[in-house]
């Protein structure tokens, strides 16, 4: 009789991931190495987040997988289908119903709760790659908590261009200690990492690294005190489909015109549904 393993990964592999997750939460922002297993998804396509999700799953969980705010992208659909097929857990696109949310490059618009865990897929976990390519030196910089090279980069950008040129993967300081790569989320989402009620876990399968931000933890972007942290500006713009304002929008260029749509498709669908329900009432 062939024994079927719950959630694909064998028990010892799960134990190693779980042990490293506990360490990652205990040392917020610190990158913990782990022996990333082969998954039936190419490395770099969400295997880190996938391994974390599979190690967390219980039978009564409800999983949401989203890719840059879209639940219907090929990456999100395939990962969601894979998770449900190997575990039998329920899947949802509704942020409010999910207990575990695996995401690539966005934080859902709907506010998260203490009962939820947000799992980020991370392509490059090391925040220092842009200023220090040597991995041994990167480790030493983190050990010394000496991030002067990042500050120099910020100073050079600020003096030459008026602001940092980093558009995503913006460096953040966790609990006034480690500098961390928040994965390629837009600047708009950086402030939403701060003091989140939900536990936030980050997995990089190709790079064999994971890290975490516990709930209610101070997360601040790398910024000089006298300079504001400027995020993407959508002032005066709204979603062409649902009319939402003040959220992160996708900019779609067509011949001769620019249109804006909600980046978070579930948020957009819900807003449309609420408007429709209000009319019917």
């Amino acid at each position: 009789m062939i024994k079927r393993v719950f959630a694909f990964i064998d028990e010892d592999a799960k134990k190693e991931i779980r042990r490293n997750l506990l360490k990652a939460v205990a040392i917020p922002g610190y990158i913990v190495p782990f022996s990333s297993r082969e998954m039936p998804v190419a490395r770099g396509w969400g295997t880190g987040g996938l391994q974390i999700s599979l190690s967390l799953l219980q039978e009564d969980d409800c999983i949401k997988v989203t890719d840059q705010g879209c639940d219907g992208s090929v990456n999100a659909v395939n990962i969601r289908d894979f998770i449900t097929s190997v575990s039998g857990v329920k899947a949802t696109v509704n942020t409010r119903d999910a207990t575990i949310i695996q995401t690539r490059h966005r934080i859902p618009e709907h506010p998260l709760t203490e009962d939820q865990i947000l799992v980020f897929q991370v392509p490059y976990p090391e925040v220092l790659t842009m200023v220090e390519p040597d991995m041994a030196k990167q480790k030493q910089i983190h050990a010394d908590s000496d991030y002067s090279k990042l500050w120099v980069l910020l100073y050079e950008d600020t003096s030459q261009y008026g602001d940092s040129r980093i558009s995503n993967r913006y460096p953040v300081e966790i609990n006034s200690h480690y500098m961390m790569d928040p994965s390629p989320i837009p600047k708009y989402d950086i402030a939403r990492l701060n003091n989140s009620p939900a536990l936030q876990l980050f997995g990089a399968g190709r790079e064999k690294r994971l890290y975490a931000i516990p709930p209610y933890t101070r997360v601040t972007p790398l910024k000089f005190n006298d300079r504001p942290f400027i995020v993407e500006d959508f002032k005066g713009k709204s979603c062409k489909r649902c009319g939402a304002e003040g959220i992160f929008l996708d900019e779609i260029h067509t011949t001769g015109s620019v249109h804006y749509f909600c980046s978070d498709t579930e948020f957009c669908d819900n807003k449309l549904k609420e408007a429709k329900d209000a009319i019917e009432r």
Partner: peptide, 29 residues
């Protein structure tokens, strides 16, 4: 015998995944 061993392993794995979440929440909060 094999079935009994598999069941025992299955029970332990189930217990482990039930217990991991509260332990993770405990260190998180």
């Amino acid at each position: 015998n094999q079935n009994a061993i598999n069941k025992r392993h299955g029970d332990i794995e189930r217990l482990n995944r039930i217990n991991f979440r509260p332990i993770l929440q405990a260190i998180s909060r």
